[in-house]
Design a protein around this nucleic acid. Sequence first.
RNA 1: GCCCUCGUAGCUCAGCGGAUAGAGCAGAAGACUUCUAAUCUUUUGGCCGCAGGUUCGAUUCCUGCCGAGGGCGCCA
Length: 552
Amino acid sequence: MDPQALAALIAQCVEKQLKAHGAEDAPTLIDIALERPRSAEHGDWATSVALKVAKSAGVPPRDFALALARDVVALEGVAQAEVAGPGFINITLEAGAAGELVSTILQQGESYGHGDALAGQTINVEFVSANPTGPLHIGHTRWAALGDSLVRVLRSAGAEVTSEFYVNDAGAQMDTFGASILAAIVDEPAPENGYHGSYIKDLAQRVLAQEPDIVSLAKDDQIALARDTGYALQLADIKASLAAFGVEFGVWFSERTLHEKDASGLSLIDGSLERLRAGGHVFDEDDAVWVRTTDFGDDKDRVIRRANGVYTYFAADAAYYLSKTDRGFAKKIYLLGADHHGYIHRLKALAGAAGEDPEKNIEILIGQLVSINGAKLSKRAGNIIELDDLREWLGVDALRYSLARYPADSPLSLDPEILTKRSNDNPVFYVQYAHARTHQVARNAAASGVSGDTFDPSLLSEPSEAALISSLADFPRIVVQAAQLREPHRVARYLEEVAALFHRWYDQARVTPQGDDPIEPVHHTRLSLNNAAGQVLRNGLSLLGVSAPERM
RNA sequence: GCCCUCGUAGCUCAGCGGAUAGAGCAGAAGACUUCUAAUCUUUUGGCCGCAGGUUCGAUUCCUGCCGAGGGCGCCA
C-alpha cells in the first residue's frame, strides 16, 4: 500500500468520525499530512490529523484520536494504529501490504515519482541569464545546477515547464564589451570600466581570425563588428559550458528582440508601456515616464522612460515580463542572485501593473552567494573562477550535487577537498555508491541463481526492510514537496536518507545466500527490494542531473 | 537611512506549526575467511542569536532588538 492510498482511506475514517461528532467540514487529503516518523518505534507512518480537526468536532484531540485509531486499525493492510502524545496516530502496516510497494516501483520504473500534483500549470523558469560579455562564473554555476534541477522536479510533478535564459544583449555594456575586444585587437589599453581579464584577449584573437579586415574599418564599425562577433562567440561558449554541465534551456531570449521596431515602427517595449499605462500605474513627471512601483511595496517609483526619451533597463524588463505572459505562462519564476534582490519589488510591481496578481503570477527566488575556501569572486575582476574550470576540477556530478543539496537562500561555502573525496564526507559519492551497490548485488544475485521471479512481500519483515520500504514509498511525496516549495535540495537530502537505509539493510540482510545455503523465496524477494531501491536512487539522481553509475 | 537574505552541535549544514531538534565530518569505542568495509554499529557533543506575541503546541508564523552578508542610480 502506498501512502497516498493510505491517506485516502484515513480521510474516509476522519470524515466518518467528524460526522459522528456532528461536524460539517470534511478534511482534504492534505490535512491528513501523513508523515514518516523519525523514530522506528512510531511505526511506518504517522498523522497529526486528530490534533487538527478535533476542535471542529468539539472533543479533546486525544479522544478523537482514540476513536479514529479504532477505525484505522480496522483497515486492510494496517497492523497497528496507536495513539501517542497529545493525539498522534502511529500506523504500522502489515509487512505484506507495505512490501507491495516494491512491485509498484519495479512496474513503474523510471516513471516512479512522477505525478500530476502540478498538472495544468504552465511555468516559465528563468535562470542564469548571464550577460554575454564574459564566461559563466561560480555564481552562475549554482543557479544553473539549482534552476535545472528545479525544472526537472516541476516537470516530474506534472507541470508544463519552459526553462529560459534571458540574454542581455542590448545596452551600453555590449558596446563596452565591443570596445574592450577592439582595444585588445589593436593592442591598446582597455577602456575605462571596460572588460579585462584574459578571456577578452582570447576573444580578440578569435574575432580577428574571423574578421581579419576589422582593423581597416572606421572606428564605430570596428566596435560594432567586434561587439557582434565577440557576442556570438561568447554566447556560444556559454551554451557549450551549460550543455557540458548538463543544463539545457528551452528558450534563449534575446533582449534585442524587445527593442526591434516592427512594420508600424513600434517595438515590444513601446507596446508594453502602453499596456502598463492602461493598468493605471504609470504617470508622467519631470518629462520622464514612471511606474508607480510603490503601489506594490517598492521603496521608490521607477523611471521606465527617461526625459531624453530613452527607455531604461526596467522598460525591457516590463516588455520581457509581458512576453512571458503572451507566450502563455501563467506562472513566471525568476531565479536571481542576492545582488539582484532589489528587483523583487519592482518585478512584482510589473506583474501588478500588468493587471496580474503579484502574489501568484510571479515568483522570485533569491539565491545567496557561493564561495570556495572563503574566496568571493567577481566577474569584472580578472580573478573569476569559471564554471568550466570548476567542472573540470570537480566533475559534473560532484559539482551539481553539492550545489543542489542546499536551499538557494543558504549562503554556501564549499570545501573542494571534500568534493573530491570518495567517502561518507562527500554525499554524492555516498548516494552514487549506494546505487552502484544495488547493481553489484543484482550482478552477484544473477551469478548465483537468485532470479527474483518469486515475490512474497510478507517475507520483508526485518526492521531494516520496513524502514527502507517506507522511505522508498515517500519518494513521490518528496518530489511534489520539492516542486511546490521550489526546493530541489529536498530530493538530495531524501536520497541520502534512502542511501543510508539501503546501506544498513545491505549490512543486515543478504540477497544471495551465504556459502552453500539454499536459495529461498526470501532471497528472490529481497532482490526485488534491492532493485526497487536502485530504481528510486536512479530516479532521484536524475532529477538532480547527476549520473547513477552501475559500477564504481 | 531604507530594503533583502541569513543566524541551529567544535565544523559544514538539514529540519511541511507537532512527539525526546537531526545528518555528515571532527572526538571515543567496535565490526572485514565481505553480496565492494567507498560500508555498518555504538557513543560524546545544543539557552535552535536575544526578547516579546499568535497557537492546544513555535527552531518553524508575526513584531522588536543584536550580529553577519548583500543591495540601493533617469547604470546595464
